[in-house]
Every structure is written in structure tokens, then in C-alpha cells.
Write a protein that binds this DNA or RNA. Structure first.
Lengths: 245, 245
DNA sequence: GATATTTGTTCGAATATCGCACAAATGGGG
DNA sequence: CCCCATTTGTGCGATATTCGAACAAATATC
């Protein structure tokens, strides 16, 4: 049923940046013939999904009917698992999503590629927040006082000789994390393990989870790793924001 | 372009209650021939919008791209969310902003304080306009003939024994709402729930949305509630007008 | 277990779509 | 200011698509 697919492409042609589209623009973005795009847009307008002022089309709130039903029944793990599987396959490394529970991070989804950690991580597993990349991303999203309270109020063993354990030093790292939008950890939780994490933000702007990649420690400088892995991570991040209200 | 409209009807056939549909069920709900519904569903599955296990179809998170793009595109949620958060914190009650879509209101932003309603409301949720405070504020902003047309043209079940359902009585309430600049509802949508709403007006003077506070029903007289909650609501209203367009 | 009912699928007739070609509008340069 | 170049919007015939009745498979009923 070609017409349906074409119409959905046209709807997806609208985005946060492109909220008003002419027929030709919509055709361009959707990759359709202008005549086809025109028919789709007129149909959408006829069905109340779009407004037409004679020149530009705009989507109406009615399009929100299309997804919200199943949205209610869609918890975090269901949303992120497919994203995680695709990401893990693309970059060939293990990826995980976790949320913050007190001073610990809890894994809610995981796509394992190869074992780099001594312990097996699975949904439900927990690690302390202070020495993990996802934990630092999640702590960085809190109010500084709250983050400091959590850090100071729980034991912070030096799991390796590289582990940062002082609250002041950790708070400085959180500030950097907040500024950069990601956290990188080099063998602070376990020798031989590095990890890069970014926050996952819902459509209202709240950080609800963290996404990371685990790597075996290598000679590569952190910069090179971030350069290679940050783009796909950030792509998943933006996809997530579109999917998760 | 009939095929597109049919396909959108099929997508809308899915809801929070009906998350898995067979071909015949989808055809029934969407009001289409079974063969037509089948083609739509297979097309949706082919495009990644639905999953098919041989018996039942399920929508995938991909359909959320269809609506969320425009939700994020609407500057409205971005503008009101911080105002809502602050207001909710100040008065200690749940607040929401909604817009009118046909005979229904659609929640575009929400700051929940405590649950007073039986159903969970979130961005994208819908309620009928005739029996909600925000709905009455939004209907009151229309031309009377248009409001009457919407009221008379859609079912108006008495959701509680206090629900006003007669078009004439509702039109009188709309006139009052227009005169007072707010709407107060006492357990007309659900027993135990009261709500106070004001219109949100853009800089050009057009009513673009409604803002409300939800309250648990108490012995307090409406006057006392309005006296306590109207000032902060009106403050947000004027802030909004300065910020929006 | 046999019948009745519902559900899924197929296939020709009929209809709507595709995309080219044309017209209208826009914009830039002389 | 006008003209030409370019872009955008729209009508129309050839063609591929959809529609819905009829058939087959599966499920429910007695």
C-alpha cells in the first residue's frame, strides 16, 4: 500500500526545525514527487492532521493521536532495547542503559557484544554511581547539593588505584561532565575497563537515564575514543528524546 | 488519497487498552473492510511501524516519530513547562496545560504533584472538553456558534451525577467563563476531583491554550479556592503572554 | 464430531495514483 | 522596469493500485 507509506514519510518530514513546509519542501525532505507530496498533504489537511494556509502546511495536534495509545504502555526498557541493539551492532561494543537509585546505578537494558568486565552485568545489576561513567552522568543531572549529599553519604572504596574517591574532586568531575555532556572513565571501576556515557533526556528535558559503551583499555587516547564513539551515542540520545515523553 | 487516511485510522485503532489487534479487530475498530485493514497493517509492518507475530499486530516505538516531532516543534510545551514546574511547586498541586482539538482537550505539558485522578494524565492524553475546566475555557474562547456546534455535535455522557450535559446549560456556563476569565469544575469529570482553569493568551490576544490546577474535593467553598489559587494562575498567565509570540 | 460462525486470503473489475508536461509565481540581472 | 531563468503548483492520461465479493482456513458451538 504505497500511499500510506508515502503519507507517513510526509508526516515525518516535519520536525522541530521544519515545522512549516511548502509542497516542494515536503517533497524534497520526504524524497517524493511534488505531485505525490501534494496529494498526501491535502489528504492530511482533509483529515484534520494538517493545516494549510495556501502556501505552507503545518501539522495539527491531531497527529498526536497516532502514537500516544501505545506510548502509555511503553516503559523505558522497551524503548531503549531496540536502540541499544542497533547501536551495539553498529559500533561492535557492549552498550547499556541505567537509571539512578540512591547512590547506585541500576542496569535496565543491555546489549552485550563481548565480555570485558570480570562480572556479568545484566538488567537489574547494580554498581556504585561515583566510579562509573553512567553514574557520573546521572549525578551531574542532579542539583549539586543533592549530588554532594549522595556522594558524601555513602562509602566510596578505591576499587582500583585510579579511582577518584574525594567528594570535592568528584564534584569537579561532575561539573565537567555537565559542561561536556558526557563522562569518560578510565579503569576506575576495574582494571582494563574504560567507559563512555551520555545522558538520556525525555521530551520535557529531564534526564531519565544514562547510556554507555564499555571498552577494553587500549593505548588509544581518550580523545580518539570520544571522537569515534560519541557521534553514534549522541544519535541514539536524540532518537531517544523523540521516542520518550 | 484514500489509502493514507485508511492507514491513519488503523494506527488510531490501537490504544492503551487495545495494544494488540488482530486483522478483524483492527478492521472493526477502524471501520474498514478486513481486506483493507490487512493491507494497511502489512504495510505498517513493512515500514517498521508495526510488528506481526502471525496472529496479532503491535505498534512499534517508531510510530511515535509521527507525532512527537510536531510536539517538540510546538514551542508551546517548551515555554510552559518551566512556568508549570514553578507554579506547581509554589501551590503544591498538580498543574497542566492543554489545547483544544475538536471536541477534546489534549495535554501538552504537565507538572504532577500528587495523583488525584484515577487515570494517569500525560502529554498527549485527551479528555472531552465539555466537562473539563480547561475545555470550557477553550470553548469559551471560540465564537458561540462554533462552540455550540462542537458541543451539540459530540456525545456528552454524564460522567458523574454532577456533570452538566445540556448544550444550553453549557453555553450559559461558557458565557460566565468568558465574563469571569476562569472556569471552575466541581466533580463533573470524576468524583472527588475539582479543577480551576484560566486561558493562556498570546501577545496578539488569541487564546492558544488553557492552564489548570487539579484539586482533591474538599469542604472548601469555591470562592475560597478561587481566592487562593487564582492569583498565582493569573500571574503565570501574564508571564506567558509576555513570553509567547 | 459435525455444523455454524468467524477470520484470513485471493483475484478480477474498477478506481485512484504516478509523474510528466504545462502554467503560475518568484527572483535576479541587465 | 522588464525580461529571462528558476522554482513551485496543478491538470491529465497511462498504469498500477485498491475494493469487496467469494473462497478457504480456523475457531467456536452444540
Amino acid at each position: 500500500m504505497g500511499g500510506l507509506m508515502k503519507g507517513l514519510k510526509v508526516i515525518e518530514a516535519f520536525s522541530a526545525e521544519r515545522t512549516r513546509l511548502s509542497i516542494a519542501e515536503a517533497a524534497e525532505v520526504a524524497g517524493l514527487d511534488r505531485a505525490t507530496a501534494r496529494r498526501c498533504l491535502l489528504t492530511l489537511a482533509d483529515g484534520g492532521y494538517a493545516d494549510y494556509d495556501g502556501k505552507f502546511f503545518t501539522l495539527t495536534p491531531r497527529v498526536l493521536r497516532l502514537g500516544v495509545g501505545c506510548l502509555a504502555a511503553m516503559p523505558l526498557p522497551r524503548v531503549v532495547q531496540p536502540l541499544l541493539d542497533a547501536l551495539s551492532q553498529e559500533i561492535g561494543e557492549s552498550t547499556s542503559v541505567s537509571i539512578l537509585d540512591g547512590s547506585e546505578i541500576v542496569y535496565v537494558a543491555r546489549a552485550a557484544q563481548r565480555r570485558v568486565m570480570s562480572i556479568a552485568l545484566m538488567p537489574g545489576s547494580r554498581l556504585p554511581a561515583y566510579c562509573t561513567s553512567m553514574g557520573r552522568v546521572l549525578l551531574a543531572a542532579l542539583e549539586p547539593e543533592e549530588a554532594l549529599g549522595i556522594l558524601a553519604g555513602h562509602p566510596r572504596p578505591a576499587r582500583t588505584d585510579r579511582t577518584v574517591t574525594e567528594p570535592d574532586a568528584l564534584m569537579a568531575i561532575l561539573a565537567q561532565t555537565r559542561a561536556h555532556g558526557f563522562a569518560f572513565i578510565d579503569q576506575e571501576v576495574e582494571i582494563g575497563l574504560r567507559s563512555l556515557a551520555v545522558p538520556l533526556v525525555n521530551a520535557r528535558g529531564a534526564t531519565v537515564a544514562a547510556l554507555n559503551v564499555g571498552l577494553a583499555a587500549s593505548g588509544d587516547p581518550p580523545n580518539a575514543i570520544a571522537e569515534r564513539l560519541l557521534p553514534p551515542l549522541l544519535k541514539v540520545k536524540s532518537d531517544f528524546t523523540r521516542l520518550y515523553l
